[in-house]
Structures are given as structure tokens and as C-alpha cells.
Design a protein around this nucleic acid. Structure first.
Length: 894
RNA sequence: GGGCGGGUAGCUCAGCCGGGAGAGCGCCACGCUUACACCGUGGAUGUCACAGGUUCAAGUCCUGUUCCGCCUACCA
């Protein structure tokens, strides 16, 4: 253990918890003590997570908050369990996004990146990064993230750049990377190719134009339908289905392309759907992926009619210089004027747009680099099938497999400047292409030194795909890599399952011969209260920083955990966060109360078992049950279950019941041993609860721990509670359940009968059997105080209870003397209601027991349970009925 | 077109392997009881989307219908 700075514990907790100061103080304390640090070598078992690197341009939003809080919960949990934990942090250079940001900055100065030139521009981006980049890192710290910041990486740093080059070269040498002229998704605004995944499709209202292409010879023509008339300028064929009777004899003939006066052939291809439109399709190989594929099959000409900005080029004849939409209007106008336009109808269709800038994608043919990933996909699929990597929730497996099985080559080149420049050089002397991890000096063939490097950079996701091993030092054989690869867990949103997770799987297996992670937990998207996706344009963004400011980070974190049910979106709601702020307050005050009543050394008390009250044993047993649930929840990534178990236990068992139950013991002077037992229990339960809660609420728990325990230790490196069968105490649970029900019954009578809470009542409990009476006797003080009684009689046989309200708590009859104040009508209706309720239950049970098939086929235990239930309900009903009879006698008697 | 998820209390949702419908918030009543009014006590509220089926038993399993989301896809 490294040197530890201690924080001087305060005498007592302040009246209210102050999140802001506590958060800053404890985060610094953790840093100062190096608690986030992971050792490259350790006797402890490793547990590692690599962060989904946020964009260097990123600002913390709800998605980040959820993602990182879940990771922090997992990492703190494992750390406390004694693992050598590494949470590897870092950022992504986010090629297009970052370049856009810096270009916008330049635009404000009236400059473009071309004014600066490539080198200066890149410098400018680095300057931008130094100045503004990494805001999100500070924001992650505010969330409490316990990353090992000493290892922070950036996808463009030296080590990672080297990894990128190494992998590229390997892929190339293995024949998995190639360059070629193919049709790709082109963004005319970003002026770069993007991958299939980076295209977002949205339905938009458009038109379907029908155009007649006249035959070269003879009368008539053929009608084609299109949503993009301007692309006709580049048409090189018209296609029909080979099985289409209507067009059978037209195949092989030629038509004249209107406006261009070019002769193009009519061809036959299975791709064409006979039922759609006229059954004939215009083919524009340079502007449509399907047409491009057809051009390859039929060796058609490929005519590019647009430039990089989607402006018509010289191949567009008279339309040269026009923007694609301007051109569309003009083409339609001219077609109409020429009598070629046969029809126009409104038509809704999907249009692809750039996921970065939302500009309409222009499919275009260009020279790009591709990765052939199908062979890598097979291994990535197998890894999940064999369970080497688990996807949680498993419902995502199907989606993963589907994508892997239909995978297409990945376009990895981008025509931008900010990114990893492709490590390929072309010799100006002999034209030789050199693919190398290190910059070559001269051409190996001709020895020439005039080598020009490829202009393109790699898709940002290329470097992200290497993240699990590149951040650990690969291609060096580092200790970190040996210790932490494969990583234990990846936590990320399902929206980047293909972008990132799938590619990391492929690259990890390809490069490391081992999967990159054991578990992949995919969490949901965060939406607003109405279930809408949060977006700036809708103005429904809930800012996590604001939430932390207003409600405290712990409340915010707990809310996220409580909302994270598997397979469902998270609907964020300020009200819920506020609710958990109240929970924070509750815990704070429960501790304050406890500390007022326990001595300095209560934690060291040794309590004999016989001195522990049933309440003491009960709360310990319940706590153990909670430990079981929380641990299971965290092990199974059921964060909401874990959070709910904690909430329920702390608020509704510990605070609502246990604290009330121990008050008489703490206040009283008569029983020192019992008081010490209670104090000891109080401290133990509190400390265990804090440890359990710590991954969810790191700041609050540390603040309390430092004051409560005050021995210089930190809760964040204390041992996480483990289930302990010895603490399980079914007897105490059963006994307390009865005592609690008796108290609730009496309170219920008070409420229902409208009796002032201040009025002390007398009650009689009638219990058959000495054991039950003994149990009630143990609860005598608790019942008296919590039900606010002036006197309590515990009896064996039915006594005449004149003027008493009556209720049943299991086998115990509860009488509350209301002599003088009893409202007979009210009591009558109360009993009536109770009887009706019992009758309803009884009817269900009797129906089952009256069914011979149930008796014959149901499990024996189930039958026995039903029989027991029937007996209890019967007894309860009889007692209530008797009370009602007495009541009517009383009423009749006056 | 294909795939996935969902329709449970006024709202937001939880309900694992089928065996007495739950939580939080909201609502109603009462209470400033010396940890907490960011609180306490008590209470009301559900044809578990619909229709079939399997089963002794279905919110839970199966089939179909319907509505709502999301993902995915080359019908111009």
C-alpha cells in the first residue's frame, strides 16, 4: 500500500450533507492516495475495463453519464472485492468531428483549412486539443470515475499511432487491405468517403418521376421511374427483368438518353423488380451502389457527373456547374419541355445522410482503401457462440450474428486531414507502392528518395478498434498487456455495437489471437421523460452537470443505476433524481442519529449472542439478505435490482423499523448489555451498508465513513461485503415479522378509526401457545412504544373485550381498547371490509383445494402451502366474525 | 421486407426457473413524536393490450391479432 494521507474526522456530521464540497474533497483524497492506480504486476487477480473513449470534442451528456457511472460501479465493486483493477481511460481523436470543429473556428477568422495547408492545419488541431480538448475528462472526474488517470491515452498519441500502423501493415500483408475504385458513401460537405455505418437513413418526402427514353430505331420508347432525375446525365443503360414478357424483345436494343443524346443499351438483370413502376430502371453506375454492381456485371460505362462537392462536372453537359438540386429542377423542367416527362407523383423514400453533418450522402465512385473483414468476422462470431465472450443482455447476440454474417468490406480511408495518415508511400520514380510501419527513406526497388505518402487518413473507428490492446502498450509486450488483456468487461451503449464492439472483437482476435473482453454489457439509451431521444433541436436535453449541481452526484449516480433495467431504455426524470437526493439525506440523517447514540468504541464492543435483541438479530439477517441481493445484482449486471435492494433495506428496514426499535433501548438506562448490543449492531449495520453502497454513492459513503470510522481508512478500499450464512437468522425474521405485523395492525386501527396519534391506548394480544406469547413478550417494549400504547396485555385465551376494535395478525388476535371512544359504526365497517378481503382470498384457496386435479398433480409443497393458507385464513375469518358478533351485541346492548 | 423490444396502479416502471399483483412518484387522511417535514403513520387505486391454446394452475409458456418504439434492408 502506498503512503496514505488521512483526513481528520470531524466530531459529528453537519446538519446537512453538502455534496459540492464533499465531492471535491474526496475525489482529491482518492487521487492523493493513488487509489485508482492499477499495478502492472500484482498477486491479486486482475479486473480491467477500457473506457469507451469519448470524443476529444465531447461534452458530457446523459449517455456518457450512464455509461461511465455503470463502469465506475463495476470497477469500484471489483476493487473492493480485492481485484487488481484497472479502468483504462482515454479519448478518441474523432477525425471528422474534430476537423469540423476546428474548421468552424477557422471559418470565424475567414479562413479555410486550405488556406493553412495540411501541416499548419494539423498543428492548429493539436493547439485546439491542448486548449479545449478533454473538457470531458474533468467532467468524468466530477462523476466520480475512478480511472487510472496516470495511464490516460489518446488515439492519436505516439504509441497508439504506432499500433495503428502495425495493424494496417499486417492486414495489408495478409491480403486483408486493398485499394480500389468502388462506389462509396460520399459526403459532399465533409468531402470525404464514409463507411456504410456512418450513413443514417431517414424517410423524406420526394417525388417519383417517370421518364420516357425513346428508342434509337423505330417508334416509341421505354419508361423508367426515378427519384433522382438529375442522375440521368450519367445513365449508361436501362435495365429490365429477364423474365419480364413486356420487355423481352427490347433487350439488346438501344434507347436515346434524353437531354444528353447518348445511345445506351437496354439490358436484362435479375435485380430489377417487375412489379415496381414500369418495370424498367435507368442505370447510373457512378451514383448508385446497385447500378454500380450492375455495371460490373454487364461491363457498362461508368460516367461520373459530379465533383466532390456534388456539383455537376463537365460530363453533365449543359448542366455543368450546377448544384445537384439545382440541376434536378432544371433537368425536370427540360424533360417536361422536351415531352419526355410522363408523370410525377409524390413519393416518400429513404435518403441517406452523413451522421456527422446530416448532409445528403452522394454515392460516388472513387479510389478508396478497404478492409476485407468477412474472414475476421467468422472468428468474432465463433467467440460469442463458444462463450469466450458473453454479450449481456444476450438478446443482442442475434443482432451481432446477423451483422457479422452479412458483413461487407469496410471503407477505411477518409479524405480529411485529422487522423492517422495511411502508411503507404508511392515512389515517384518507379511507381512502386510501399506499405510500411515506419516512414521509408527510399524506394526498395529503384532506390529513389522521392516518396509521396498517401493523402488519406484512416477512419477514426480503425484506431478505436485496437483500443483494448493498443492502450495497454501493444505492439510492445508490456506487463500491463500481459496482466490485463483480455479485459474483463466492456460497458457500452448498443448504438455502437457494430461501429466499435464488433470491430474490436475482430481486431482483437486477429492481432492478439484472443478476444478483447470476457463480458460485454450493452446498456440502453437515455431518453427524456416522454421517451424521446434527447437532442439539441428538440430542446429536451437534461444536462448531467446541472443535475449534479442541483441534486448531488451521488443522487444522480444512484438514479442512473436504479433506472438501468436490462433491455430497456432509460427515461431520465428530474423528479426521480430529486427522490434519490432525499434518499441521500435519509442516509445522512440516519447516520447522524446513530452517531449521537453510540460511543467512540462501539465498533469494538464484543456482544454475547444472548444479549442481542431479536431486532438486532433481525436487522443483521436482513442486511445479509441485502448483501446477497446486491452482490447478485452486480454480478449479473442487474443494476436496478441492486439499487432497489439497497434502497428498500436502508430506508424501509433499517430506518423505518430498526432505528425506531432501538430508540427505547438506546434511551433507556436499565439494560446496559442490551444497549451495547444495539450500539454494536448499529455501527456494524451502518458500516456494512456504507460499503455496500459505496460503488453507487462514492462521495456520501466516503464522507460518512471518514467521520464514523475515523481511523484513517477509506471506504473505497475497504472490503466489499460478502454473503454470510451465519448472519442469516430465520427465527429472528419470523419473530420480528409477527411483532411488526402486530404494530402495523394497531396503527391501522388508529388510522382507520381516526384516533388521534397522541392518544395512548391499551391493547390486548391474544396468542395461542406459549411460544407465540414469548415472542410477543420479546416485542413488548417495541409494540408499546411504536404503537403508542399506555398498556399492553399478552394473554393466552380469549378474554371478553368489550368496546375494543379488533384485528388479526397471523395467529394473534389484536384488541385495542376503545372504551368510551369506540365508534361502533366505524368499527363495524372496518371489520366488514377486512372480512370481505379474507373471503376473497379464501375463495381462491378453496377453489384450488376443492379441485381434485390440483391435489393430484400440483407439487406436494404447493398443496401443503395452500392447505396451511386455508387454515390461517379460516382462523382469521372466525376471529373477525366473532368480533363482529360481539360488536353487534354491544351495539344492541347500548 | 426482415429482426428486436415493449403495451402491468393516475404517471414512470420492476416482476428471474409458471403456484397468494409490486416499487417510486402522485393522490387522500392524520401527525412539527428530541436523525430526517428532503419526515412519519395509515389508506385508496390494476379485465397485467386483445383473442385463442398448453397446464391442476398463466402477468409469466405457445399461437394469432392489434398498437407503440427501435434496429436493419439495394425496390429505382
Amino acid at each position: 500500500m502506498r503512503g496514505k494521507k488521512t483526513f481528520m474526522g470531524k466530531e459529528a456530521l453537519t446538519k446537512v450533507f453538502e455534496p459540492r464540497t464533499a465531492e471535491a474533497r474526496w475525489y482529491q483524497y482518492w487521487l492523493d492516495n493513488d487509489f485508482f492506480h492499477a499495478a502492472d504486476e500484482s498477486a491479486k487477480k486482475p479486473f480491467s475495463i477500457v473506457i469507451p473513449p469519448p470524443n476529444v470534442t465531447g461534452m458530457l451528456h446523459m449517455g456518457h453519464a450512464l455509461n461511465n457511472v455503470l463502469q465506475d460501479i463495476c470497477i469500484r465493486y471489483r476493487r473492493m472485492q480485492g481485484y487488481n483493477t484497472l479502468w483504462m481511460p482515454g479519448m478518441d481523436h474523432a477525425g471528422i468531428a474534430t476537423q469540423n470543429v476546428v474548421e468552424q473556428e477557422l471559418a470565424r477568422e475567414g479562413l479555410t483549412r486550405h488556406d493553412l495547408g495540411r501541416e499548419k492545419f494539423i498543428e492548429r488541431v493539436w493547439e485546439w486539443k491542448a486548449k479545449y480538448g478533454g473538457v470531458i475528462i474533468h467532467q468524468l472526474k466530477r462523476l466520480g470515475c475512478s480511472c487510472d488517470w496516470s495511464r490516460e491515452r489518446f488515439t492519436m498519441d505516439e504509441g497508439l499511432s504506432r499500433a495503428v500502423r502495425e495493424v494496417f501493415v499486417r492486414l495489408y500483408n495478409d491480403g486483408l487491405v486493398y485499394r480500389g475504385d468502388y462506389i462509396v458513401n460520399w459526403c459532399p460537405r465533409c468531402r470525404t468517403a464514409i463507411s456504410d455505418l456512418e450513413v443514417e437513413y431517414r424517410q423524406e418526402a420526394g417525388h417519383l418521376w417517370s421518364i420516357r427514353y425513346p428508342f434509337v430505331e423505330g417508334e416509341g420508347g421505354i419508361v423508367v421511374a426515378t427519384t433522382r432525375p438529375e442522375t440521368m446525365l450519367g445513365d449508361t443503360a436501362v435495365a429490365v427483368n429477364p423474365g419480364d414478357e413486356r420487355y423481352r424483345e427490347l433487350v439488346g436494343r438501344e434507347v436515346v438518353l434524353p437531354l444528353m443524346n447518348r445511345r445506351i443499351p437496354v439490358i436484362a438483370d435479375d435485380y430489377v423488380t417487375m412489379e415496381f413502376g414500369s418495370g424498367a430502371v435507368k442505370i447510373t453506375p457512378a451514383s448508385d451502389p446497385n447500378d454500380f454492381a450492375m455495371a460490373e456485371r454487364h461491363r457498362l460505362d461508368i460516367i461520373r457527373i459530379m465533383d466532390e462537392g456534388a456539383v455537376i462536372n463537365k460530363n453533365g453537359g449543359a448542366y455543368e456547374g450546377q448544384d445537384r438540386y439545382e440541376c434536378r429542377r432544371n433537368v425536370v423542367r427540360d424533360l417536361e419541355a422536351g415531352g419526355y416527362l410522363v408523370g410525377t407523383e409524390p413519393y416518400a423514400h429513404n435518403i441517406g445522410q452523413c451522421y456527422r453533418c446530416k448532409t445528403h450522402i452522394e454515392p460516388a465512385v472513387s479510389r478508396q482503401w478497404f478492409v476485407r473483414i468477412a474472414p475476421l468476422a467468422r472468428a468474432a462470431t465463433a467467440a460469442v457462440i463458444t462463450g469466450k465472450t458473453r454479450i449481456i443482455p444476450s438478446s443482442w447476440e442475434a443482432t451481432y450474428f446477423d451483422w457479422m454474417n452479412n458483413i461487407r468490406d469496410w471503407c477505411i480511408s477518409r479524405q480529411i486531414w485529422w487522423g492517422h495518415r495511411i502508411p503507404v508511400w508511392n515512389c515517384e520514380g518507379c511507381g512502386r507502392m510501399i506499405v510500411a510501419a515506419r516512414d521509408p527513406d527510399r524506394c526498395p526497388d529503384c532506390g529513389g528518395a522521392a516518396l509521396g505518402q498517401e493523402e488519406d487518413v484512416l477512419d477514426t473507428w480503425f484506431s478505436s478498434a485496437l483500443w483494448p490492446f493498443s492502450t495497454l502498450g501493444w505492439p510492445e509486450r508490456t506487463g500491463a498487456l500481459a496482466t490485463f488483456y483480455p479485459t474483463s468487461l466492456l460497458v457500452t451503449g448498443f448504438d455502437i455495437l457494430f461501429f466499435w464492439v464488433a470491430r474490436m472483437m475482430m481486431m482483437g482476435i486477429y492481432v492478439m489471437k484472443e478476444v478483447p473482453f470476457r463480458d460485454v454489457y450493452l446498456h440502453a439509451l437515455v431518453r427524456d421523460e416522454q421517451g424521446e431521444k434527447m437532442s439539441k433541436s428538440k430542446g429536451n436535453i437534461i444536462d448531467p452537470l446541472e443535475m449534479m449541481d442541483r441534486f448531488g452526484t451521488d443522487a444522480f449516480r444512484f438514479t442512473l443505476a436504479a433506472f438501468t433495467a436490462q433491455g430497456r431504455d432509460v427515461r431520465m426524470s428530474e423528479e426521480r433524481i430529486e427522490g434519490y437526493k432525499y434518499f441521500v439525506n435519509k442516509i445522512w440523517n440516519a447516520t447522524r442519529f446513530s452517531m449521537m447514540h453510540i460511543g467512540e468504541d462501539a465498533a469494538r464492543y464484543v456482544v454475547r449472542r444472548e444479549d442481542a435483541s431479536v431486532a438486532d438479530r433481525w436487522i443483521q439477517s436482513r442486511l445479509n439478505r441485502t448483501v446477497v441481493e446486491v452482490v447478485r445484482g452486480l454480478d449479473e449486471y442487474r443494476f436496478n435490482d441492486a439499487a432497489a435492494a439497497l434502497y428498500q433495506f436502508i430506508w424501509h428496514e433499517f430506518c423505518d423499523w430498526y432505528l425506531e426499535l432501538v430508540k427505547p433501548v438506546l434511551y433507556g438506562n436499565d439494560d446496559d448489555a442490551a444497549r451495547r448490543a444495539a450500539q454494536k449492531t448499529l455501527v456494524d449495520v451502518l458500516q456494512t451498508s456504507l460499503r455496500l453502497l459505496h460503488p453507487f454513492m462514492p462521495f456520501l459513503t466516503e464522507e460518512i465513513w471518514q467521520t464514523l470510522v475515523a481511523d484513517g481508512s477509506s471506504v473505497m478500499v475497504s472490503e466489499y461485503p460478502a454473503p454470510d450464512e451465519a448472519a442469516s437468522d430465520p427465527d429472528a425474521e419470523r419473530e420480528m415479522a409477527l411483532i411488526m405485523e402486530v404494530i402495523t395492525r394497531i396503527r391501522n386501527i388508529r388510522g382507520e378509526m381516526n384516533i388521534a396519534p397522541s392518544l395512548k391506548l391499551r391493547a390486548t394480544l391474544v396468542a395461542p401457545g406459549g411460544e407465540l406469547q414469548a415472542t410477543l413478550e420479546k416485542g413488548r417494549v417495541a409494540i408499546t412504544i411504536l404503537a403508542n400504547l399506555a398498556g399492553l396485555t399478552i394473554a393466552g385465551g380469549a378474554a371478553e373485550q368489550k368496546g375494543a376494535a379488533m384485528a388479526v395478525a397471523g395467529p394473534v388476535q389484536v384488541y385495542v381498547q376503545l372504551a368510551g371512544v369506540i365508534d361502533i359504526a366505524a368499527e363495524e365497517s372496518r371489520l366488514q371490509k377486512e372480512i370481505a378481503r379474507v373471503d376473497k382470498d379464501l375463495a381462491v384457496v378453496s377453489r384450488k383445494l376443492g379441485n381434485p386435479e390440483f391435489l393430484a398433480k400440483a407439487a406436494e409443497a404447493v398443496v401443503r402451502k395452500e392447505q396451511e393458507k386455508a387454515r390461517e385464513l379460516g382462523e382469521k375469518r372466525a376471529a373477525l366474525e366473532a368480533a363482529r358478533t360481539r360488536l353487534s351485541t354491544l351495539a344492541a346492548g347500548g
